Amino acid sequence: MNKPRIESTTTFTTAACESRDVILSSTERFLSDFHDLRPGITSNAFQALPAIKGGNNAASSYEFLAEIVPRVSTPLTVLDIACGDGYLLELIHLSRSKTATLIGVDISAGELAAAELRIGKNATLISERGQEMSMSTDSVDIVLCHMALMLMDDLEVVIAEIRRVLKPGGTFSFIVGAKPERSIALDLYIQILRRARNDLNSTIPRFGDERLADDAKIERLLSVHFGNVLIEIISISRRYSPLDMCRWFESMYDLHGIPHDIQESMKREYVNALTTKCDSDGFVAFTDALRQVTATAF
Rank of each mutant, 00 (worst) to 15 (best):
L76A: 05
L76K: 12
S61E: 14
A51V: 11
P70W: 00
S32C: 10
P70V: 04
N57R: 08
L31Q: 07
L37N: 14
D33K: 01
A66N: 05
L24V: 11
N44Y: 04
S25Y: 06
V78C: 05
F46S: 02
A51E: 11
T27G: 15
F34C: 06
I81F: 09
K53T: 14
D21K: 15
D80A: 08
S32Y: 01
R71I: 02
A58M: 09
H35G: 13
Q47C: 15
P50Q: 06
R38G: 01
I81P: 04
F30L: 12
A59E: 12
T77L: 08
N56Q: 13
F34Q: 01
P70K: 01
I41S: 14
P39Q: 00
L79Q: 00
F34G: 09
S26Q: 15
Q47W: 09
R29I: 07
I41R: 03
S26V: 04
G54F: 01
H35K: 02
D80R: 03
A58I: 05
V69I: 02
P70A: 02
S32P: 03
E67M: 07
S25G: 05
Q47N: 15
N44A: 04
S60P: 08
P39E: 00
S25V: 08
E63F: 01
L37H: 08
N57L: 03
T77A: 14
D80K: 08
T27M: 10
R38Y: 02
D21V: 14
I68R: 07
L79D: 04
I52Y: 05
S73H: 11
E67W: 00
I41G: 02
S26G: 07
I81E: 08
T27E: 12
P39W: 00
I81V: 15
D21H: 11
L76W: 11
E18D: 13
N57A: 12
I52E: 09
L24T: 10
G40C: 05
L37E: 15
D80V: 00
S60C: 13
S25A: 06
T27A: 06
P50W: 03
D80E: 13
F30W: 09
S60A: 13
F46P: 01
E28Q: 08
A66Q: 00
N44D: 10
E67V: 10
P70S: 06
F30T: 05
R71K: 13
A48R: 10
L49E: 05
A45P: 04
N44P: 01
P50F: 11
S19N: 08
V78I: 14
E28L: 01
F34Y: 08
